[in-house]
């Protein structure tokens, strides 16, 4: 699953634009992920601050 670290996130939306599934959404000042996430890790790479991590379940 994708873990969003809200304490690190700068809610810039860079991750939303590269998400191939449209699973991420920037709601005002917080980021959400829905069930369509495929744990591809593209957002984890692109984040300028390192707020996203794919965690193995």
């Amino acid at each position: 699953m994708l873990n969003i670290r809200r304490d690190i996130c700068g809610y810039c939306g860079a991750c939303v634009s590269v998400c191939p599934e449209g699973a991420l959404e920037l709601v005002d000042a917080y980021l959400t992920v829905d069930h369509t996430c495929i744990n591809c890790g593209i957002c984890e790479k692109v984040c300028p601050l390192g707020a996203l991590e794919v965690v193995k379940e």
């Binding site: 939306g13 939303v16 634009s17 449209g22 959404e25 920037l26 692109v46």
Partner: peptide, 26 residues
């Protein structure tokens, strides 16, 4: 709706930016 645009995607247009074609900025 900017870089994090979702509206067009919901309407069926693929707006996904390839990873190598985004500048990630601070």
């Amino acid at each position: 709706d900017g870089i994090e645009s979702k509206f067009s995607k919901w309407a069926g247009i693929d707006t996904t930016v390839p990873l190598r074609e985004i500048e990630t900025c601070a």
